[in-house]
Amino acid sequence: MTDIRYTEDHEWVRLDEDIATIGITDHAQEALGDVVFVELPEDGREVAAMEACAVVESVKAASDVFSPLAGTVVESNQMIVEDPSLVNGDPMGGGWFFKIELDDVEDFEKLMDEAAYKAFLETL
C-alpha cells in the first residue's frame, strides 16, 4: 500500500523511494473552486520545508502551494498547466503538482497520516 501523508495546508505527499509527489487534497480543491491557473517550480529548485513554491488560482483568488518537506524539485506536472481543471477533477491523481527528491526521507514520517488528516478536517 502506498503511504500518503497530509498537511494542515491541505496538501498530500506520496513517497516512492526518496521522491515525494505533492498535490492538493480534495478538500482544498473543493474550497478553492474551479482552478484556472497554476504556476509550478522549476526543476532543480531547492526548497525548504513549508516554502511557498507553487501557486494555484481559481476565478476568485490565488493561493500558495507549499513544499511540505525540504528537497530538490525534480519534476512538475505540465498537464495541469495545460488543463488546470485536472486539479479539480483528479486532485489526488492526475492533478499532482510537483515532485521533490527529499533531503531527508525521515521527515515524511512527521506528516499526518490519513486518519490524523481526517480528524483534522473534523476540527475545521
Binding site: G33, D34, V59, K60
Partner: peptide, 12 residues
C-alpha cells in the same frame, strides 16, 4: 452566497 454547488465558473 459567494457560490452555489455549480461553482463560480459554471454560474458565470
Amino acid at each position: 452566497p459567494v457560490q452555489y454547488p455549480a461553482g463560480v465558473l459554471g454560474e458565470h
